[in-house]
Write a protein that binds this DNA or RNA. Structure first.
Lengths: 149, 149
DNA sequence: TAGTTATTGAAAATGGTTTCCATTATCATT
DNA sequence: AATGATAATGGAAACCATTTTCAATAACTA
């Protein structure tokens, strides 16, 4: 556990953004927790450490972090957006299985290499054909988890 | 253009649902229009033919049709759900390119066969490993369209 | 250390979707 | 074709995640 400035500080400076306490705590929460937090959940978690935090700030910061590419924003169809770390230590590229009954989300990394290769190959061709600059993709499987089927 | 009862009537009977005017018109609108209508847009379109329609009914019917598998519900990230026919004549399996700047949605069918084969192969294995019954998948590419890049 | 200005937080506004409930329409049965 | 049980409808209000507004505060620069 080496100390030193957290890995994201330089990223903020680079963008010209200020490194504030709320932002650091939100990032910290996201980097510790397992996954897929909603804005409300992030708010709750940050609140324990920094009670003065406002929900508004959480929303703004999550948008900022997503725009910076540090986190990813997902919509799993339950009416609220969810966020998870995409960069930095401890994060790993993965896709999702989403239970349409209980809402459970299963991360899987099986086939990820194959998938990424396949998708980027397709992306490249689509990019050319439609003159479309692809930033990201989303692949998710919907169905029933073992408890709900 | 053969007459006869629309292809979906039997589907309704089968489910024990009543075949009402609002439902028929909503389905008709969806089967005529090009694509990706929001509930509001469906409401507007139905209104021209059947002014007494209520927005509530549109939402309820869209949910019903989605549940019946006749239409698919998508969230492209612009804050409203969108619906399109998945079954019946004139519909074709496809995936989407979504412009994160202007919101434009491009349907593509290139590689569809390869994609479906690849995804169902993956799906089959995931299904087994996680004991998860997969109903549908969603694959979408996000980026900038030719006008926005 | 002071000044500029990005950032914050509370409250109110927004907007898509859902709930409530009295009225209406569909369909099986007569 | 008329009846009755009940599914379906539509308008208003409720919901709830997210966004906007704006005065107060904090971060960085000079």
């Amino acid at each position: 556990m080496p100390g030193g400035p957290p890995w994201w500080q330089r990223r903020f400076k680079g963008y010209g953004y200020r490194l504030t306490l709320p932002r650091q705590i939100i990032l910290d929460v996201l980097s510790r927790t397992s996954r897929h937090l909603s804005a409300e959940e992030v708010y709750m978690a940050v609140r324990r450490i920094y009670p003065a935090i406002g929900l508004t700030t959480v929303y703004r910061t999550l948008d900022l972090l997503a725009q910076m590419g540090l986190i990813s924003k997902f919509d799993f169809g339950d009416g609220r957006n969810r966020y998870e770390l995409t960069a930095g230590p401890g994060s790993e590229h993965h896709h999702h299985l989403i239970c349409i009954s209980c809402g459970r989300i299963i991360d899987y990394t099986d086939f990820i290499d194959d998938e990424v290769e396949f998708l980027s190959m397709i992306g490249k061709t689509l990019s050319k054909k439609y003159n479309f600059k692809i930033n990201t993709h989303q692949l998710q499987f919907y169905g029933l988890c073992d408890k709900c089927r």
